[in-house]
Design a protein around this nucleic acid. Structure first.
Length: 787
DNA sequence: CACCCATCACATATT
DNA sequence: GTGATGGGTG
């Protein structure tokens, strides 16, 4: 009990000032700003509440008002409220808004955070109950895979046939369901060649030896503790008087159990979510959790937020047309007061590059101001893609035309090679037992310590039952290693001793220490001598890393932060258009949204449908719904008939979701190139892109018919029945040597060589080229196709 | 042991 | 097209 009370997270927050001040401020002006539904959700404070909040219905506003109301009415002190979100961004936003409503910052809400960060706090307190020390390290996916690889090698399992990645996925799945190795269902016995469960047990043992956790463990361990130690659970049940959960539709089984355990006392739990926006099934989220809420918490108060403040009626109607294709929804009807605005625009393109080019032009025209409109900032515009590899085409295009853009969710700062290396050095300094970190950097930069030498260190460490760093010392003492490697290893080990002592003495600031570590270890020098074009950038990143340390007390605190917060939102001043994935865009809104790549196989993703069938398709459909509902004023959907996949040209059909867009809310634009416009004619004629046509027209256009015809010519029959992103079989060998052909890029030419779908062509102007057959048409048909 | 080149699998989304 | 891996060479 005493240690419980000494918890600084509780203590620091217990200062009376905030709660007292909040209570003194009795009047509740924030209530007047809510609509009736929101107000009901805020004022129903006791007992279970389910807030079904459609996109753009003021969910965060209701949630933060509820927190403020709980404080304001004296129901709870700030540190007695547990509020969990999925992303750090959402947590930050909530903190900010609660603070603003209260008129002060709220450092006093220690239990407002992501599931993972709250769990880390809990687990540090009770780590010994699951066999860990409270200073355990948190492994990221990379470390996880490396560890599993080691296990596989030790078990002599061929990691070609049975890749560590796959095992990691299986184990993650089990952890998402809060299954410890002993609890894994017998139905899973066959997993990973029948060795899955055994390997899982070994992996957990290894993690304990390393005093480490992976992401899944954070939740699972806490659930285990709650289940096994009722006294601890009861303390927390009493402590957390009110529980709030954001994005409830994204909770997995472990999170669900965690919440149910904590709420089972007073049942003051308020879950906010939207079953139509559940898009994380692939990482274990269970829509069932939200669908079942009323059974789990009998007497639950269900509030629907249906007034949308974000999007125009056309956009809402388009979104609801798509989502209505899903079965088993809780059902909501969004409505809005806003004026009609523009219809959702739909446009097809010949290939991905043209799509990027067209969107680039659209962005510029929005920026300049279309027709009578005023120009808009690039900040109002976003391109939301299904898969991150789609981003590349846009980056390429925007670089050439000099359009400023920002990619969110690309390779993140803290996942970069040099940052991870540098952090591995810091990890060894702060916890010398961190073998995974040590392993990562023993030979980075190159110290002449290859496989053989590293094996020796491993063996020596195991012999003495010590960490790798200690093992290396023993090895040196025993003269087990000589030559260049030996000298270098000695230098490294001595370096670590020095840095560790330096860190303990606290004489230097941790920033200075970090610089010394990177310099003396030769890591900075390694990149200074690097002659690849990335070298300077990497050095730059290392500098930024040291700068980022400034905000933290010490290296330890920094590492903890990084392991949980892998985002990197540096504030920039320049206006930029945003490129991000649909998943990343959830919770955001933009006046102008572009949704490219709506092709069957890409979106909905083939893999999702192969793996999860109808459920997968429904999740993809929700993703489409999320995409459309991000738009406030203008939403533009596009697709391309041809796209490069794995560097190969493939053709595709428009997404099935396009057929589900209600026609009366959609404006079909004519692509540049149809009706004789585009490539040849555009030079002389007016730009075609604003031309109006109906959806049917676009599908009936010559170019479109040809695309369809090509797809249907394939011998596989029904084009909807199998993969759509495949090589266009009709194009293969349909050309012969000597035939005269036309290609968009190179103009007219004669075929000199046929190699399956690749043609060698001697062009009149461009010379000899290799071109894919699907990119070429007979010269006499050049007018028919959308070139 | 480091470096170079050929080969291969590959890329749905994230804490 | 990219990044990881493995075999051969210096």
């Amino acid at each position: 009990m005493s240690s419980f009370d000494e918890n600084d997270a509780f203590e620091a927050a217990s200062r009376p000032s905030l709660a007292a001040r909040a209570m003194a401020a009795r009047p509740a002006p924030y209530l007047d700003e809510l609509n009736p539904a929101q107000r009901e959700a805020v004022e129903t404070m006791d007992g279970p509440v389910l807030m079904l909040a459609g996109a753009g219905t003021g969910k965060t506003k209701a949630l933060t008002s509820r927190i403020v109301h709980l404080l304001n009415t004296g129901r709870a002190r700030p540190n007695e409220i547990l509020a969990v979100t999925f992303t750090n961004k959402a947590a930050r936003e909530m903190k900010l808004r609660v603070g603003r409503m209260l008129g002060q910052t709220i450092e006093g809400m220690p239990w407002l955070g992501t599931f993972h960060s709250v769990c880390v706090k809990l687990l540090r307190r009770h780590a010994e109950l699951v066999g860990l020390k409270s200073n355990f390290t948190i492994l990221d996916t990379d470390d996880q895979i490396r560890l599993l690889k080691q296990l596989l090698t030790a078990e002599k399992i061929d990691d070609k046939r049975w890749p560590a990645r796959q095992l990691a996925g299986i184990i993650d799945g089990w952890k998402n369901r809060a299954w410890t190795p002993k609890q894994v269902s017998s139905a899973e016995a066959g997993a990973f060649d029948g060795k899955g469960i055994e390997l899982y047990a070994q992996y957990q043992t290894r993690l304990r030896e390393l005093n480490a956790c992976d992401f899944g463990d954070l939740l699972m361990h806490v659930v285990t503790i709650f289940q096994k130690h009722s006294d601890i659970l009861e303390q927390y049940q009493r402590w957390f008087k009110y529980i709030l959960v954001d994005e409830y539709q994204d909770t997995n089984v472990a999170q669900y159990l965690w919440l149910r355990l904590l709420a089972s006392g007073h049942k003051n739990i308020c879950c906010v979510g939207d079953d139509d926006q559940s898009i994380y099934g692939w990482r274990g989220a269970e829509v069932g959790n939200i669908l079942r809420f009323e059974q789990d918490f009998p007497g639950a108060h269900v509030v629907r937020l249906e007034q949308n403040y974000r999007s125009t009626p056309h956009i809402l109607a388009a979104a609801s047309g798509v989502i209505s294709g899903n079965a088993g929804r809780l059902g909501k009807e969004l409505w809005t007061d806003l004026p009609d605005g523009e219809k959702v625009r739909l446009i097809g393109h010949w290939d991905g590059e043209e799509e990027a080019r067209w969107i680039g032009e659209e962005l510029e025209s929005l920026q300049r101001g279309r027709r009578t409109e005023k120009g808009q900032s690039l900040e109002t515009m976003a391109i939301l893609v299904r898969a991150s590899h789609q981003m590349r085409a846009f980056e390429d295009r925007f670089l050439t035309i000099g359009l400023p853009y920002r990619v969110i969710g690309g390779p993140r700062f803290y996942e970069r090679l040099e940052i991870r290396d540098a952090m591995a050095y810091f990890r060894v300094v702060t916890s010398p037992d961190d073998d995974l970190a040590f392993e990562r950097i023993v030979n980075t930069p190159k110290r002449g310590l290859g496989n053989v030498a590293q094996q020796k260190i491993q063996l020596c460490a195991r012999k003495h039952e010590v960490s790798l760093l200690e093992g290396a010392k023993h090895l040196l003492a025993e003269n087990g290693i000589g030559g260049k490697g030996g000298t270098e290893l000695r230098k490294l080990v001595e370096g670590f001793d020095r840095w560790i002592a330096e860190a303990r003495s606290e004489r230097l600031s941790h920033m200075e220490l970090a610089e010394i570590i990177l310099d003396e270890s030769g890591y900075t020098g390694h990149w200074q001598n690097d002659k690849t074009p990335e070298g300077p950038g990497r050095l730059e990143n290392l500098k930024e890393l040291v700068k980022a340390l400034e905000q933290f007390e010490n290296l330890q605190g920094f590492l903890e932060h990084v392991s949980l917060i892998m985002d990197n939102e540096n504030e920039e001043s320049e206006e930029k258009v945003t490129i991000m994935t649909l998943h990343g865009a959830k919770g955001l809104e933009f006046p102008n949204v572009f949704l490219p790549g709506w092709e069957d196989g890409l979106f909905p993703s083939q893999r999702s449908m192969d793996e999860s069938g109808v459920k997968g398709e429904e999740e993809e459909r929700r993703l489409a719904y999320v995409g459309i509902t991000r738009a406030e004023r203008l939403c533009t959907i596009s697709f391309a008939a041809n796209r490069r996949v794995y560097g190969q040209w493939q053709n595709a059909l428009p997404s099935r979701f396009i057929d589900e867009l209600p026609e009366e809310h959609v404006d079909v634009l004519t692509p540049p190139g149809l009706y004789g416009g585009g490539y040849g004619a555009a030079a002389g004629g007016a730009p075609q892109m604003e031309a109006r046509a109906t959806k049917a027209d676009a599908y009936n256009s010559p170019g479109w018919k040809r695309m369809q015809a090509r797809a249907n010519e394939r011998p596989t029959g029904n084009p909807r029945s199998s993969r759509h992103l495949t090589i266009d079989a009709s194009a293969i060998s349909s050309f012969t040597e000597g035939e005269r052909v036309f290609n968009q890029k190179y103009g007219y030419g004669v075929i000199v060589e046929v190699d399956n779908d690749k043609l060698g062509i001697s062009f009149d102007k461009a010379g000899d080229k290799k071109v894919l057959a699907s990119f070429v048409v007979p010269a006499d048909k050049a007018g028919d196709v959308p070139f």
